[in-house]
Write a protein that binds this DNA or RNA. Structure first.
Length: 367
DNA sequence: GTAATTTGACCAGA
DNA sequence: TCTGGTCAAATTAC
């Protein structure tokens, strides 16, 4: 069933199906409750149907959606591709890695642009995909420590939301041609899809640290948030792959922020711990979606919609151990939790998605 | 003043 | 011809 579905689709499917299950359970409770109300039952049924419709939609679109929306390398571990790092030219063109001295095309070069675009189109892509929840500062670097500069935005045919194009801030100064595309998912409005292309060649971008790196934009953004009286919250789950293959390089640790206090989960040695090291709350790896493992190179974020329970995910009992000893980080907003982190049982009141409920920055971003 | 973002236009590929 | 990706001038923010 899941053949052809990318990790993103799996996650979305898990979310929707589990939510459907949850809603069904709630409905069941309602039915046997002396205080049941027709309105509540109707609401639950509506939500239930909606969830399954979404799940079916995702299923029907299958891998094609993955490819179309988030790129080719987002697939399940079994279908991952080993892709070479992109050749990053200052000009924006990609070139062979064994030709590092190729002179970059100047912005106003006479070199036919079509040649550049041709190379870019035909080159093997290396990419990462990230999913992030709504309520985050998507317009920024999305929390990864790299500095991103937006260079374009397009309305994508068939997609509700526009796609924003970012490239490394140090593109000109250091010839870093890492880019990323950010787009809100049509399938689940709580998701924002981020597709990374190209490896950072800049110093800033390559100096990744899972713990806390920050660069200009990030700092600036946090500063702004602080000025606005906001607190910062992170939810991030990063899983690496061999495809990047470069071990530590995976630790790009993209993240994102949204208003709230920080609750961070750190993945170490098969277990997730609350990022609050004082408590060091343990989170069993079973509570991770099966699609999140270390055999894929994508650095993916689980997303939580305002009405998604963390336990909505279908968890796998056999999350591979971290041989690299790398720390992967999963953080979640405690603003949407009202139950202990340790058992990962975050219950949320079901709330229909309402764009008006989302933080201003998100709405502005997609406006 | 500098850097980042927005947005319409251009181009290549399908 | 349509669509996605990028450019670059204009605009905005710092």
């Amino acid at each position: 069933m899941e053949k052809g579905l990318g990790i993103q689709q799996k996650i979305l499917m898990n979310i929707e199906l589990k939510q459907g299950q949850d809603l069904a359970n709630q409905l069941k409770k309602q039915l046997y409750s002396p205080k049941r109300s027709v309105e509540t039952c109707e609401f639950l049924v509506t939500r239930l149907l909606s969830s399954y419709e979404k799940a079916l939609s995702i299923l029907n679109k299958g891998g094609a959606t993955t490819k179309a929306v988030v790129g080719c390398s987002l697939g399940s571990p079994g279908e991952k591709k080993i892709l070479p790092p992109p050749l990053i030219l200052k000009s924006g063109a990609f070139k062979l890695e064994d030709d590092p001295c190729t002179s970059p095309r100047s912005e106003k070069s006479d070199e036919p642009r079509k040649n550049v675009l041709k190379k870019r189109k035909t080159m093997t892509q290396w990419s990462e995909q990230v999913q992030v929840p709504l309520g985050t500062g998507v317009e920024g670097p999305l929390g990864d420590e790299s500095s991103w500069r937006k260079y374009g935005q397009k309305n994508i045919f068939g997609a509700t939301f526009p796609r924003a194009y970012y490239r490394c801030t140090y593109r000109n100064s250091q010839g870093c041609l890492a880019t990323k595309q950010v787009q809100r998912s049509d399938e689940s409005l709580s998701l924002i899809l981020v597709n990374y292309k190209g490896r950072h060649a800049c110093k800033k971008g390559s100096e990744s640290s899972a713990r806390s790196a920050s660069c200009g934009n990030e700092e600036k953004r946090h500063k702004t948030q602080k000025q606005n009286g906001e607190k910062t919250n992170n939810f991030r789950m990063c899983h690496k792959t061999e495809e990047l293959g470069k071990g530590t390089e995976v630790e790009r640790s993209p993240s994102f922020t949204f208003p709230s206090t920080i609750v961070e989960f750190v993945y170490k040695e098969n277990h997730f711990y609350s990022g609050d090291t004082r408590q060091n709350s343990f989170i069993d790896s079973r509570y991770l979606p099966s699609s999140i493992n270390q055999e894929t190179s994508e650095c993916s974020y689980l997303s939580l919609s305002p009405y998604h329970n963390m336990n909505n995910f279908e968890f796998d009992q056999s999350l591979p151990s971290s041989e690299s000893g790398l720390t992967e980080i999963l953080s979640a907003p405690n603003s949407v939790t009202n139950s202990p982190i340790g058992d990962f049982n975050i219950s949320l009141d079901p709330v229909d998605f309402n764009p008006n409920n989302f933080p201003l920055d998100i709405l502005e971003f997609f406006s």
